[in-house]
């Protein structure tokens, strides 16, 4: 583990009316780690993601993202698109959100919008054909090619994204997020609906993203073959509260986690609930 956390979440609370979706959650994502956020259905995992990526404004709490140059970004104060553009946090969605009517290549080019926008002099220079837009455009295609290659989608580059099979769509969404050049990649159930072979492939892709591209990963996942295999650090949520935090093996043997997933004997309920803080 490196010294300074990439993302530090402190006392994050999110209330929807009377419902407390996240209750005083604190955890850290370290640079170069694959951090997994797990928990039973309805534990508030996706809500945490939506808070980090700015789609929800948290009721309370502070989320600090630290870049390598030491600059801080307070995510709870930034609008969603700035979090992606400036703080460099990219995300995927639980229910895939591709631009289905655009080709695979176009999906990856849209992801490089901000770089290209600047290169085209906010459209005006590019429209007149002056400036470095042509070079930037070629570079963006090269970058798209790199990610197409890495996600094995090169053959489908000119097909509409909506035409791809489910597993390919999942990989394309990751490739698209990576084209924004993030420091932190947030994946919401990337292995959902994948077969065992595809899950294995996903593991390799995520490892490569961390190792070759130096991007830290935060993922929500139910598939324990993915979580336990690749994560360095696991945070377990239940009813919006953190119940365990540590290495995969530590979490696996934590009685609270076992209780949350498998339930407990009737006579132990009160004792466990008291421990969990309910």
């Amino acid at each position: 583990m490196s010294t300074k956390p990439l993302l530090k979440v402190e006392h994050l609370t999110m209330r929807f009316g009377g419902l407390v979706a996240i209750n005083d959650l604190s955890f850290e994502v370290h640079k170069g780690d694959i951090t997994a956020l797990i928990g039973p259905n309805g534990a508030g995992k996706t809500t945490v993601f939506n808070c980090i990526t700015g789609f929800y404004k948290p009721t309370e709490g502070m989320m600090t993202l630290t870049h390598a140059d030491g600059s801080h970004y307070l995510l709870e104060r930034m609008p969603d698109f700035r979090i992606a553009a400036q703080a460099k946090v990219a995300r995927t969605f639980q229910n895939i959100r591709l631009f289905t009517g655009m080709t695979v290549l176009e999906n990856l080019l849209v992801a490089q919008h901000n770089v290209l926008m600047k290169a085209s002099g906010y459209t005006i220079m590019g429209l007149l054909g002056i400036g470095g837009y042509k070079a930037a455009s070629a570079a963006s295609v090269e970058k798209a090619k790199y990610w197409l290659d890495k996600t094995r989608l090169t053959d489908r580059a000119d097909d509409p994204a909506g035409d791809l099979p489910y597993g390919d769509q999942r990989r394309l969404e990751i490739a698209r997020a990576m084209c924004t050049e993030p420091l932190l990649l947030c994946l919401d159930e990337p292995a959902a609906g994948l077969n065992p072979r595809e899950s294995l492939e996903l593991n390799n892709l995520l490892r490569s993203i961390r190792k070759d591209d130096g991007v830290s990963v935060l993922l929500i996942e139910h598939d324990m073959s993915v979580v336990m295999e690749i994560s360095d650090h696991v945070v377990v949520l239940d009813y919006g509260t953190k119940i365990s935090d540590g290495t995969p093996s530590h979490v696996q043997n934590d009685p609270k986690v076992i209780a949350a997933y498998l339930g407990v004997e009737d006579d132990e309920v009160e004792a466990v609930e008291a421990e969990v803080g309910l």
């Binding site: 789609f55 969603d80 992606a84 553009a85 995300r91 959100r97 591709l98 849209v110 997020a177």
Partner: peptide, 8 residues
Amino acid sequence: IACRSLGI
């Protein structure tokens, strides 16, 4: 929503 997640 996907647009915003890509920084647009």
